[in-house]
């Protein structure tokens, strides 16, 4: 099949950037979007031109590296999918495809389709952990956890940190990402000791990183490759309020 690729090219964070069109032919519907870009890059490199820069790694939908907006939707048209798991069969022969970076003040463009998502790491550093030094942990079965509780925690913990939620949000809010981590740990007994501090500090860091506010419209959850539920945002709000009224813990 044939496609016209309209790709955002930007030399660096301070460059203005622009869309550049590339005709792509001899494509197979079984190719992923990234394999199509591999092919384009091979052609560009062979012609002595600089390849299109994009983040990717595992290509199994779990590492959270791939990050682009395809025809206006983070990770493209397929529901519950990452860019690496989006195949050309989702598009029509001859179609125009627009590929752009995740756009948010907190995610500056590094180059082309690659953005800097280190703000997410700093939110985790602000409290997305249980302070348990290596060694001296009690036997795993000494702390019984109801099956449903573990399942709920796992639902939230499944977040891959890709940032599609931010890219989809008109306010570039990081609420779904932050909510997933806060909720994962607040749901489990291990997370109780630092529960209040964690919610407060992670939300404060999120604001400091210049992510926008949440208006509960759910664009984040709609594009989330792991279908992290909007309910966790409600839980984050609750956790945050709780952290301000709770006397202890």
């Amino acid at each position: 099949m044939k496609l016209t690729l309209n790709i955002w090219r930007q030399q660096g964070p301070n460059d203005t950037g622009q869309i550049v069109s590339y005709p792509a032919k001899d494509l197979s519907p079984d190719m992923s979007i990234l394999e199509m870009l591999d092919k384009l890059n091979e052609e560009l490199i062979a012609a002595g031109e600089e390849p299109v820069v994009f983040d990717h790694d595992c290509r199994e939908g779990i590492c959270g590296s791939c990050s682009m907006v395809i025809n206006g939707v983070p990770h493209g048209p397929q529901k519950a999918s990452t860019t690496c798991q989006t195949f050309l069969r989702s598009f029509q022969d001859g179609e125009n495809i627009y590929l752009e970076p995740f756009r948010a003040t907190a995610f500056p463009v590094v180059r082309d389709l690659m953005v800097d998502r280190s703000a997410f790491d700093r939110i985790i550093q602000a409290g997305g952990y249980v302070s348990a030094n290596t060694g001296g942990a009690a036997d795993g079965n000494a702390l019984p956890i109801a099956q449903q509780t573990a399942e709920d925690a796992m639902d939230a913990a499944a977040c891959i940190g890709c940032g599609a939620c931010v890219a989809a949000c008109k306010n570039a809010s990081a609420m779904l990402f932050t909510a997933a981590k806060v909720s994962h740990l607040a749901t489990l007994p291990q997370g109780q000791v630092e529960r209040s501090e964690r919610a407060r500090n992670m939300v404060a860091q999120m604001d400091e990183e210049m992510f926008g506010s949440c208006t509960n419209q759910g664009a984040c959850s709609a594009v989330c490759p792991k279908e992290i539920s909007l309910d966790w945002i409600a839980k984050l709000n609750r956790e945050h309020i709780r952290s301000r009224v709770a006397v202890s813990t």
Binding site: Y129, V130, A132, T134, G135, A137, A138, D139, G140, N141, L143, P144, I145, A146, Q147, T149, A150, E151, A153, M154, A157, H184, L185, L188, Q190, G191
Partner: peptide, 17 residues
């Protein structure tokens, strides 16, 4: 034990084990 202490959500039986 270490991973449980960190909050890794391992699968559990109905009794919590």
């Amino acid at each position: 034990d270490q991973c449980v202490a960190q909050g890794v959500p391992f699968a559990r039986e109905y009794g919590g084990q």
